[in-house]
Design a protein around this nucleic acid. Sequence first.
DNA 1: GAGCCTCGAGATCT
DNA 2: CTCGAGGCTC
Length: 266
Amino acid sequence: MISLCPVCGSLLVRKEGEADYYCQNPECSGKNIFALIHFASRVAMDIDTLGEKVVETLHDQTFLQTIPDIYKLNQYKSSIMELPGFGDKKVQKILDAIEKSKQQPLDRLLFGLGIKHVGAKVAKTLLKAYPSIDQLKQATYEDLIQIPDIGPEIAQSVENYFSQHKQLEMLDELKSLGLNLTYHQDEVKPHEFNGKIFVITGTLQGYSRDQASALIEKLGGKVTSSVSAKTNILLAGSDAGSKLKKAIELGVYVMNEEEFKVKTDE
DNA sequence: GAGCCTCGAGATCT
DNA sequence: CTCGAGGCTC
């Protein structure tokens, strides 16, 4: 089947062994769109509901031009909600999924960057030898070619990618936006709620008190009733009163429902 | 309620 | 890959 680039109309090509189409016109912004779609896709960063159409629309509306822009979308929430077809729930779902994707294992991110010859498998192979972006970007051609299953083509492509300033800057930006740039191969890390002491206050929209407590305990946290110096996290719903005030005085971390939802999801 | 979009299931091919 | 279900917007 023949497809045309939705942006510039030129013929799309599919590279051998890859699922996605690319626009070859060097002037075309369609390339960006495909790169973004690939990054967000299920096989890469798996950003739920950030599918082709959504990426395309946000790109056309200039909210989304580069990969780091994905992680800045939350700044434009209200403007995005004014777009036709982007209601409250949909936008929130997208933003939640984006937030969650920051924790994706690094091999997904590396694959998502769309480096030539670096597919899902090669990404893992590279990270076994150099388990962080900081290490990988310093590897020379000679270093890379020593890695089992990595030949001259891939080594050249990877070296080339990391020699470009604009890519290094982009990766720095992703780091500062809170993405995970180190690879924890088979380390199953305990949930961040593990061992934390919670207090719940105010009215939660999506959970009853019992549900929230059960969720926290399931993830290894503990729920107590009053805020003290021992409290680690105050989960605050709307209309929070004295507990919130006290938490702020004591410097206890205050978590809103949105963050709670994201962090307990899965 | 209609229409759009994304996802997952199950079939298909390699 | 194709199809249908389900969620969301309007």
